[in-house]
């Protein structure tokens, strides 16, 4: 759980910093000091303004090693008490600025790494595939075994798989991929913490709006019904592309 990146960035500071970003805020925890106190301070600062409601929050824990219970505490504070819709915890200073939004390959990769590694660590422990085996994706995955109805919202730091439909007015937000084993008619936001290689797949992909990373796609007004075959939406050259789902070969 130790930071692998802490030394590569700018030196951690001793004060709590909250930096606004395009989609929310980035919180830098001080590298030293009692975490309970820091979290209380953070809540006191952000709660009155209700500034995080529905926003994306990145917490940089500045090289502290946190156990799962601590991560849960942060999650409860940011998501439940402060009402943010997405949380990403990073364990060190990112080399680049916060949240690069360009479509270039370089920064994009780093964003994805940031988004996934911290949550991977607790879950992946002891379950890592042996070297040279299949390149397995150990990102936590949430299984929703029901239809997600209007007004219901699922948000998860990881992949989301829905065994049912996602109806109009429902919303799925995931930092990873979204897979719907049914008809997707609501809003799906994959790669919501910035992963540009995230994808949305559905047996019938008929969403009103799709978001992958920072790219937003909308169904054409009064356009033709989409075919009833499994499809997948990805970002290619900064544009959302929907194509027939084919099992990836040769990997």
């Amino acid at each position: 759980m130790a930071s692998q990146e802490g030394s590569s960035g700018s030196p951690p500071t001793d004060s709590l910093r909250v930096i606004p970003t395009r989609s929310g805020v980035r919180v830098h925890l001080p590298a030293r000091g009692d975490l309970d106190g820091v979290l209380a301070q953070l809540e006191a600062r952000l709660a009155p303004e209700d500034a995080l409601r529905g926003r994306a929050v990145t917490v940089d824990v500045a090289g502290r090693s946190l156990d799962v219970a601590r991560l849960r505490e942060i999650e409860t504070l940011i998501l439940d008490r402060l009402g943010a819709s997405l949380l990403q915890v990073v364990e060190g200073r990112a080399p680049a600025g916060p949240r690069p939004r360009t479509d270039g390959a370089g920064p994009a990769r780093s964003v994805r790494r940031q988004g996934r590694r911290p949550v991977e660590e607790p879950a992946g422990r002891g379950a890592s595939p042996s070297n040279g085996a299949l390149p397995l994706d150990m990102t936590p995955t949430l299984l929703v075994r029901r239809t997600v109805r209007s007004g219901q919202r699922v948000r998860f730091n990881g992949h989301v798989v829905v065994l049912g439909d996602v109806n109009p007015g429902a919303e799925i937000v995931a930092s990873g991929d979204i897979i719907v084993m049914g008809t997707l008619r609501g809003v799906a936001h994959a790669g919501a913490t910035g992963a540009p290689d995230a994808q949305v797949a559905a047996l019938r992909l008929q969403p009103g709006q799709l978001r992958v990373g920072s790219v937003i796609g909308r169904a054409p007004d009064g356009g033709p019904q989409r075919p009833s075959v499994p499809e997948v939406a990805r970002v290619r050259d900064g544009v959302l592309v929907v194509e027939r789902f084919l099992a990836p070969g040769g990997e």
């Binding site: 109805r149 209007s150 007004g151 219901q152 109806n167 109009p168 007015g169």
Partner: peptide, 9 residues
């Protein structure tokens, strides 16, 4: 849409 919301509730 509203019926769907109600069913969820």
């Amino acid at each position: 849409r509203d019926a769907d919301r109600i069913i969820g509730l």
